[in-house]
């Protein structure tokens, strides 16, 4: 079944800094999926488990987080904390017998790199295969 996933991306201020330039038009030109809703946060270490769960409650088919490289976080350990919270949500989804791959963590360098676009495309393709959220 073909469908357009509702994907929520939480990205840290630094990783997504240039991605939002020109109101995100550059992102679109580079092929970033338009069905991914980007929310910028000061640091992914601030992202709460409850915020990710709320996204699913609000109808998201998937949630992913883009933070700084593991050893290069602007706030030292912020992206490491985010990765642990993403792992916790993956376990919670498993408890609910839902595919854990609906939640992912990416550690990417600051700025608009091809990897930022690739992560979005990869996430979109993955969820297209998995299918709509069971919630």
């Amino acid at each position: 079944m073909s469908f357009t996933p509702d994907i929520r991306l939480f990205s840290c201020h630094y990783t997504s800094q240039q991605s939002c330039a020109h109101e995100g038009k550059e992102l679109q030109e580079l092929g970033f999926p338009e069905n991914i809703q980007l929310t910028r946060i000061p640091c992914t270490g601030k992202l709460e488990v409850s915020t990710m769960l709320k996204a699913f409650e609000d109808g998201a088919d998937a949630v992913y987080v883009v933070g700084c490289p593991v050893d290069g976080c602007h706030n030292v350990q912020g992206s490491q904390r985010a990765a642990k919270r993403v792992a916790a949500v993956r376990e919670m989804l498993q408890e609910l017998e839902v595919e854990p791959d609906r939640v992912r963590m990416y550690h990417l360098n600051r700025g608009l790199h091809p990897e930022f676009i690739d992560a979005g495309i990869e996430m979109n393709q993955r969820i297209e295969k998995i299918g709509p959220s069971p919630f």
Binding site: V49, S50, L53, E95, L96, F135
Partner: peptide
Amino acid sequence: EREAEILASLIRLGMKK
């Protein structure tokens, strides 16, 4: 309070599923 917020969300999701 933080854990209760998470649990409430999980119960809502679980019941809906």
